[in-house]
Nucleic acid binder design. Structure first.
Lengths: 330, 330
DNA sequence: TTGAAAGCGGTACCAG
DNA sequence: CTGGTACCGCTTTCAA
């Protein structure tokens, strides 16, 4: 079904048919009714690609995330979607699995279609991808980007501070053997967390530390904990790069016959909803994912306010104390 | 950047430029090189909407799910995405939150763009949506649809059997007071699970039963369990409509001072990865989400094999025993 | 092997 | 208020 057929059936020109659909009020009421009737009878549905091509507008937003399975990314995506849908925008999403080459491909595909804006909620970086973004003239948001790139609005998390507070908190409880469990330490934002951990820890001369890493998954957390245990380090506190992996860590500790928090304290990062449902409920660092989703939307769609600022948006995480941390019994 | 500019720069016609990009071998090598050069210099990127419009082809698949936050849906989506990406297809996804009116809107939006196929992985139903699908001439897959609609390939789960086995198992352990916790009992596939529970249970005259429902979420599971407890029913076994809600149930039981499985046994449904990481590890019913994702893909993209059969695909779930179920101590 | 031109399905401007 | 028409960016005959 095309507009042409609708127009013929309604006995009007294709121009009028178009107007009847898009600018009511400009068309005589009877005429309009006839068109609408024809639309109904023919089950006509406008081709959005053609509309976009001809009209030069789009209401689609692109989002690329590193790991959709991690509730952290999912929550941001979901919040963004909620906001977008409510404002009449569509969301096109793609997942990279932390692989830079997939990021490049995803950006390529995204930019290949008319988009009102693009958000990169990814930890990996890729020069090619950044280069493509540079000569693109639509709003871009970069989340979690360590080195401010010459493009788009960035949203930054103050990892160091959160990491520092967590270490200090554990120290104050009496912990002196701490470990950090992360993933993809080759990626900037993740190495940064690890570095923040190392830096803070080195400020306490009487603290021993170790790190381990695996995939960003439940199994990855478990595996990293396994490594740690096998290494013989025997920490009294384990800090995880995110809550998702912490779930695996808790499981492995249990498996190894170690109780949390009596034998080993565990902390997460992100404060995903699940963290509160775990046993024991997880001490973690809150990252306001819903707000981030909204911030991203407003950065992509400036609204009536005017031109968007390119100033970075900074988020200050805060520690959330629950049951997975306690003074060491050893 | 348009193809026209590229053509001008390369000193060839726009037709040749197009060929150089899409049908190498038809164009003289030198010519082709010049075009490629121009593409590079101008940072040209083809407009996929225009390509689709002119070429009449698409490689985008649409997917609509009920609740992206539930790992069950997410896993299917993810598997489908993996398969699609690997085969050069794109995925366009939308979330309905179980709301029929959103389903209609989502289908409307989906059908508004050229799509190679559409998968509905939703529990809700909407006549309007089905009607739209009827006069659409591309592959459609309906997952979890109870009443076979006059359209598309359906993928069905044998709930009854799984439910029955679970009840029988709990009965054999000695449970006589069982409860079912679901969500959206107004929706067919979910009512079906509840009905299956009721039907099986009624086969055991000495079993008392009750049901409760809330949202499909962690909090929903918790709340439903709360209701159940408040009602005074005091079950020794609780069967959940899915693992996601079971997480909330476990939490609430703990909160109420009841141990699992000593005081109350709990079962889930779906066998999401998380279920194995919970404490206690959840007894559940396995639904092969990865396979379902692949099945959906192949139903949407028939491959070289020929025309797709419209025969329903049936999945037989199986019980997975873990630590959240045991003989009742009371 | 290459170019000219006819669309694909719409939108929007310009007259009438 | 309505019709004619020039595109939007690209693919694809049809001839040359």
């Amino acid at each position: 079904m095309t507009l042409k057929e609708v127009a013929e059936r309604a006995g009007v020109s294709i121009a009028t048919a178009s107007r009847a659909l898009n600018k009511p009020g400009v068309v005589q009421d009877v005429t309009r009714r006839r068109v609408l009737q024809a639309v109904k009878e023919l089950h006509y549905r406008p081709n959005r690609f053609a509309q976009s091509l001809a009209g030069g507008r789009t209401n689609a937003l692109g989002v690329i995330v590193s790991n959709i399975e991690n509730p952290f990314f999912l929550d941001i995506l979901h919040a963004l979607e909620e906001e977008a849908t409510r404002k009449g925008f569509e969301l096109i999403y793609e997942n990279t699995d932390y692989r830079p080459e997939r990021l490049a491909g995803a950006v390529e595909r995204m930019l290949g279609r008319p988009l009102a804006g693009l958000a990169l909620i990814v930890s990996e970086r890729d020069d090619e991808a950044v280069a493509m973004l540079e000569d693109w003239n639509q709003p871009v948001v970069l989340f979690d980007s360590v080195h401010t790139p010459p493009v788009g609005v960035t949203i930054e998390l103050r990892y160091e501070k959160a990491m520092q507070r967590t270490v200090e908190y554990l120290y104050s409880l009496g912990h002196r053997r701490m470990a950090f469990i992360g993933h993809h330490s080759a990626l900037d934002p993740l190495r940064e967390r690890e570095n923040a951990f190392m830096a803070t820890v080195s400020g306490f001369p009487d603290v021993e530390s170790a790190t381990a890493a695996s995939n960003d998954s439940l199994a990855g957390g478990r595996q990293a904990m396994q490594q740690l245990l096998a290494s013989g380090f025997d920490p009294t506190a384990v800090m995880c790069a995110n809550d998702f992996m912490a779930v695996g860590v808790l499981r492995e500790l249990r498996e190894a016959g170690l109780r949390t928090p009596e034998d080993v304290s565990v902390t997460g990062f992100d404060n995903i909803e699940l963290s509160e449902y775990l046993y024991p409920a997880l001490t973690t660092v809150n990252i306001p994912r819903q707000r981030i989703g909204q911030l991203i939307f407003h950065a992509l769609v400036p609204g009536e306010s005017g031109q968007p600022s390119r100033r970075p948006i900074v988020i200050e995480p805060e520690l959330v104390l629950r049951d997975s941390t306690a003074p060491p019994r050893r």
